[in-house]
Design a binder for these strands. Structure first.
Length: 515
RNA sequence: GGGCGCAUAGCUCAGCCGGUAGAGCAGCGGACUUUUAAUCCGUUGGUCCCAGGUUCGAACCCUGGUGCGCCUACCA
């Protein structure tokens, strides 16, 4: 028995048996954890060209992967080995395998072990292309048994906390994250083809801005200064447009110190891009392509599942509806931005307007969010937001009170948000000042400081520019038909397990400098 | 933040009206040379989430707590 066992608080008698086997391996002078192994084939390579391999004894193959459930018959056995490409069945036969390999199987092999298998390919009686093992190398013992083979791991908490187990036993999970990776890769390729430049801007910011949200605060010891984790990269990216990067994008994390739900994780991934010369309308055309093409490349289709039915999002253009039209269409509420609060309340009829609303505009936005959003299932652009809720957006040329802005809704979620960027420094300064005033009056989502450097940048001149933000997690939810954002984030934020809950930030080295 | 629900073996789950812990899989021992949840025989394994309370007696009832899920509200 390994002297260390049990070294974790979370252990059981099952682990003990596995550690005994590891000790037995060592007692024979064998390395339980060899450093490397040269596989020559992937499972998918063999299965994708099986006729080239079947019954060709000269074509020896060698694969490496994790052992699945073992079906043992005394002097023979079947099991699958899973590598990064998929899985292939292994047939261990006392007559065909070398003596050491058979003994390794018989004495030491468990479900979940990592093995290297060398052998030749054949087809079994039941028709499955398989490898008949000539030798078997144990590359890593599984010391902690996998969940049950039939039901797998279903407990959502365990799946999110121990994603590694989830990935091993639930193939759909691997597929979801493969799709996510492909979506992002195709998006990058698409943007690069359109001559966008990918950049990385600060996530730790002395001043935060670019959205309405509450930030996380952290601290730099040497500089002895508080920093905010960014809620958006917007203000830095537009500085780059000023600097001449006329097509620029960033795909990375934002952090918002707000609620957690099936649609919200405190850190989430956003694509933000800016294109000089464009406006909100050209950006809407672009968004359609930007969301359709990666979906086609990543999944091979252009359909997504909405309310249980397949919807082809490649049918363009997507409807573009002003926020006021949407209110009238879905709720029969006829309002406009010039109305007084009492007029809005009267027009709302039976639709409740809470007393906390700050004014008529707030009331209209509230009506939209509570009564219209849940109707927006198929991709729909909502346009013409009021200037007051769009402090970084330019007004429409023909209506100074309305921002040249859109939000894209799919499956009742806001998936993208874009607008013509305000590039008038004096007006931007005034809008910031309004935010500071709102903050002073208690709006915790309003930014309480004017970013003077950003206004200074605008003074150097930014060309007419349109900007866009796309929630990558939500886009992935749509592409993979995932009901929760936690299903598309590998390690969603969870409260610590009890054993970790005791540790303070100081224990973990986060204390301030002693000097 | 509000509401509803869940927590029992490594995993998936039973556990009736409160009477003292069960199954399948996994594990361990045995039989078995073409299986696909292999089969057959035997068998180990429990902080019933935690802390109190009620009771002769609590997995079960009550109170408080912890974690998670779903709905709802806000942010994307």
């Amino acid at each position: 028995m390994s002297q260390q066992f049990p070294f974790l608080s979370d252990h059981s008698h099952l682990h003990e048996a596995r550690y005994r086997k590891i000790d037995a391996l060592r007692a024979e002078g064998r390395n339980a954890y060899p450093a490397s192994f040269d596989a020559t084939h992937l499972a998918a390579t063999i299965l994708g060209a099986e006729e080239e391999y079947i019954d060709k004894p000269e074509r020896v193959v060698c694969v490496m992967g994790r052992v699945g459930p073992i079906r043992a018959f005394g002097k023979s056995a079947f099991f699958h080995v899973t590598d990064r490409s998929g899985k292939i069945q292994i047939f261990v036969n006392a007559k065909a395998i070398d003596a050491e390999g058979f003994r390794t199987y018989k004495e030491f092999l468990d479900t979940g072990d990592i093995v290297g298998v060398t052998g030749v390919v054949f087809r079994t009686k039941s028709g499955e292309t398989s490898i008949e093992a000539r030798s078997l190398a144990l590359l890593c013992k599984n010391a902690r048994p996998l969940p049950e083979k039939w039901h797998g791991l279903t407990d959502k908490e365990a799946r999110y906390r121990q994603r590694y187990v989830d990935l091993i036993v639930n193939p759909d999970v691997l597929e979801t994250f493969r799709t996510r990776s492909r979506l992002v890769a195709s998006m990058r390729r698409w943007l690069d083809e359109q001559e966008f430049l990918e950049v990385e801007t600060p996530m730790m910011q002395p001043l935060y801005g670019g959205a309405s949200a509450r930030p996380f605060v952290t601290h730099h010891n040497t500089l002895d200064m508080d920093l905010f984790l960014r809620i958006a990269p917007e203000l830095y990216l537009k500085r780059l447009v000023v600097g001449g990067m006329h097509r620029v994008y960033e795909i990375n994390r934002n952090f918002r110190n707000e609620g957690i739900s099936t649609q919200h994780n405190p850190e989430f991934t956003m694509l933000e891009l800016y294109a000089a010369g464009w406006n909100a309308a050209t950006m809407m055309d672009f968004v359609e392509e930007l969301l359709i093409e990666p979906l086609r490349l990543a999944t091979g289709r252009t359909t997504i599942v909405l309310d249980g039915r397949e919807v082809d999002i490649a049918r363009r253009p997507w409807p573009r509806v002003t926020i006021l039209e949407a209110l009238e269409r879905h709720c029969g509420i006829k309002v406009d931005w010039k109305m007084s609060l009492s007029d809005v309340k009267a027009a709302a009829g039976g639709h409740h307007v809470p007393d906390e609303v700050h004014g008529p505009i707030d009331a209209i936005i509230h009506l939209f969010e509570t009564h219209v959003e849940h109707h927006l299932v198929e991709p729909t652009f909502i346009t013409e937001f009021p200037k007051a809720v769009s402090p970084l957006a330019k007004s429409k040329d023909d209506d100074p009170e309305v921002a040249d802005r859109f939000e894209l809704y799919v499956n009742r979620m806001e998936v993208a948000n874009g607008f013509s960027e305000l590039n008038d420094p004096a007006e931007q300064f005034a809008r910031f000042a309004e935010q500071v005033e709102r903050r002073r009056q208690g709006d915790l989502e309003a930014v309480g400081t004017i970013d003077e450097d950003y206004v200074r940048a605008l003074e150097f001149g930014m060309p007419p520019t349109a900007g866009l933000g796309v929630g990558i997690d939500r886009y992935t939810m749509l592409a993979t038909a995932s009901p929760s954002i936690r299903d598309v984030i590998l390690f969603p934020l969870m409260r610590p397990e009890s054993s970790a809950a005791e540790a303070t930030p100081e224990d973990q080295g986060a204390g301030k400098d002693e000097s």
